[in-house]
Amino acid sequence: MARLTTSLQQKRLPLVTRRELLLLLSASSVMASLVLIFFWVPTEINQGVVQRIMYLHVPVALASLAIFGLLFVTSAVYLWKRSQRWDALSYAAAEVGVLALTLTIVTGAIWAKPTWNAWWTWEPMLTTLLILWLMGVAYLALRAYSPPGERGARSAAVLGVLAGLTAPFVYFSVELWGNLSHPEKVIGPGRSADSEIGASIGLTLMVSMLSFALFFAALMVHRYKLRRSEDDVDALHLFNMQRRGSRP
């Protein structure tokens, strides 16, 4: 409550807030990497034009894994510290993580169809990502179906920890499950004989990774702030209800 009143008292607003600056920066760097991807980098010789989706797919996939890792850590820290900030961060991670993972799976499928002649294979990495996606959706469903407040936050954090612990087991068990054709690892596009082309592919991938890291960081910050405001509104609502209840 105290935090809310102080933030309301702050009258002077800067021209561009730090959050807007981050969004602006990430938007322009994503634009820059799109220019690199579609106009500058030469077409990879083995896979053709479709290989260009790798410059989106790989950064988004790495971002989604990083965000799910963050969800695991923030869930554990929330259970330890019990501060609503960590819960808001977990929630933001779950939502942005599911978004990033959806993009990863869709861009991967678009690449896979012409390359492997199938939208999907039950390869360990793909299967693990799908199970992670299901766990992320379960997290959001649990939040949606829990009453607002600490109890829902705690159960969701427990799910976050258990899901994080099970992820490596899923990967190893699907690998052990075997009897599937292991496609070649797609991280890092095949180096062409020409070293200059190899370097430009590497540079494009690097710029794209940086810009998508910025983009998802901006999304995380926005979602986190929004979640904090939602928590404040919930607290105000509860406060009003209690006051009305005591003095009818």
Partner: peptide
């Protein structure tokens, strides 16, 4: 114990349990 405190608890349990127990199920 988690699902029992939510609305629509009957659908909640499989949603939570199935993905986490995939390794056991495969084994």
């Amino acid at each position: 114990a988690t699902a029992v405190n939510t609305r629509s608890r009957d659908i909640m349990l499989p949603l939570l349990l199935m993905p986490v127990t995939v390794p056991v199920f495969l084994g």
